[in-house]
Design a protein around this nucleic acid. Sequence first.
DNA 1: CCGCGAGTTTGATCAAGAGCAATGTTCAGA
DNA 2: TCTGAACATTGCTCTTGATCAAACTCGCGG
Lengths: 231, 231
Amino acid sequence: MSKLDESLLSDLPPFSRLGRSQIREILDQASSRRYEEGAAIFREGHEADRFFLLLDGYLRVIRTTPGGDQIIVLHISPGQLFGIAPALERDTYPATSVAAAESIALSWPVRLWPEFIAKYEGFATESYKTLGSRLGQIQETLTELATQAVEKRVAAAVLRMVNQSGRKTDKGLEIAFPVTRQNISDMTGTTLHTVSRLLSAWEKAGMVRSTRKHIVVTDPHRLVVLSNATD
Amino acid sequence: MSKLDESLLSDLPPFSRLGRSQIREILDQASSRRYEEGAAIFREGHEADRFFLLLDGYLRVIRTTPGGDQIIVLHISPGQLFGIAPALERDTYPATSVAAAESIALSWPVRLWPEFIAKYEGFATESYKTLGSRLGQIQETLTELATQAVEKRVAAAVLRMVNQSGRKTDKGLEIAFPVTRQNISDMTGTTLHTVSRLLSAWEKAGMVRSTRKHIVVTDPHRLVVLSNATD
DNA sequence: CCGCGAGTTTGATCAAGAGCAATGTTCAGA
DNA sequence: TCTGAACATTGCTCTTGATCAAACTCGCGG
């Protein structure tokens, strides 16, 4: 593993208040790994022996039911902590995380967690905030799933991905990682068929453009309107 | 407000490692309040100026959509911390909490949070765990909602309430707080009509007994089977 | 440049459960 | 004891979106 550069961490919230030498210390204890698209970083139920920070790429956090259905609980973007089961004193990971695109993550052994909390100013607060915002996000999704019709849920899911990862292209806002119809249906509790029909309809209406595994939102405004229509 | 007794806290996880004098200190800074059934402890969007501990009773945590639909995100039972928005550095509560039965809660002003974390051993860990288990619960609910048919969701919701609050009666396990059909439908994203039909069917089949606002599960085992049938 | 497979599209059918409507029941308070 | 409000039940209809089925297309590896 090559020597990691300090600038990797110095701008990220969990570490931004730390001095050079502390960051060095943290990096020296980290492992860095690269994950291919589709590779699992860790799996539900496995021993939670490390915690992670995503440096580059995007992850899906997935839960699988006993019956084999799966659902995408949330996405992780660069700079976020994840797999922080140790904070919760859990000994296994409660979900699986999979690289949605080629990704790079740092990780540390669980035993360092208490030390990080105690030693590095801002780390505790930051991880609380991560937990909290994740809780908020999931509550949002839950509420949506329980109350909204499929079209609105799908619109909201697409918008969430765009907000989290969208980058401007000449055509509009593009989701920065590959997404299949199946993926979207796994986020919204519907089927890939329904998602496909919706995307076709939206494309016909000029709101999105989509190719095989990529989606560009050409008219975000109308999609937003759609996602929170009252009727 | 009458003087609070130290034994109120000494057995609860967030405080169990503390000495008498520390508990006294914590209690002296707390306010205690009683809430009637149906009363709100705090409301979504309001300024998050206090954090809470439920001493007695049961709460529902509710989110309301712009369109006015509401959903019950989770229940709180005695001994649990709640309204810990401050930990997340949020300045408003992300959900509303309402007393499902007559309840008593302690609360402290937000400004004490950092002090609690720093000063009282185990408090930080405990609140992490609270957050974490809540995250787990909600993920569970989300997965269920996205993948399971209505009957299984309703069965699971009833079982969850029984597990959390069930007490033995001569007939079976009774949910310890009032629950309407509407409440259950708000937990499961269905309608009160559907819940009513299901309860009737289950009653006919001898698995539950229910009166106006109370539910007794007479045959938990069969309900469990129902809640995770594979077909 | 071909062929194969993963991902997608679209049509047709059908069932689950929402919505609507009307009636029934329990309970708290006057 | 009566009345009204809150809660519950049940029948009927109709819509949404799941399911089944089949064909299509893109893009990659050989």
